[in-house]
Design a protein around this nucleic acid. Sequence first.
DNA 1: CATATGACTGTCA
DNA 2: ATGACAGCCATAT
Length: 122
Amino acid sequence: MDATNLATNSKAHIYRAYSIHSVTDPAGKVLTYGLVADYAGLPGRARLVSKALKQAPSHLNLPWHRVINSQGKISINKQSSAFAHQVELLRLDGVTVNTGKISLSEFLWKPDMATLVLSLPF
DNA sequence: CATATGACTGTCA
DNA sequence: ATGACAGCCATAT
């Protein structure tokens, strides 16, 4: 498998992992790039997750807006229109956003044992 | 192969 | 809480 295929499969892994998690992850909760990477079996590849979500085909309907950085902040540049879009989507989810910041202690999704077991097939 | 670039992260001042 | 920084990893040139 060459580098290109590895990257493609990694993205697919992320898409699949995040798809499954987004089913059990209720609107109103968020995850960090690093956590999604862990769930996808790709620890240490938070930046790949951000790229994968950014480039994800729209037909996958992934709730990309529920993924923020480990500091509890939206990673998109404030000047970008996409930033306002993410804020809007999060508010529709019921997530409180203050100047791009979100309280992780309040909104971070903490998977329980059952959901973790359901995700293990990867 | 060398560099540059990110929707990242942990540490430190 | 905030900003600088180095480390990190896949991609793009």
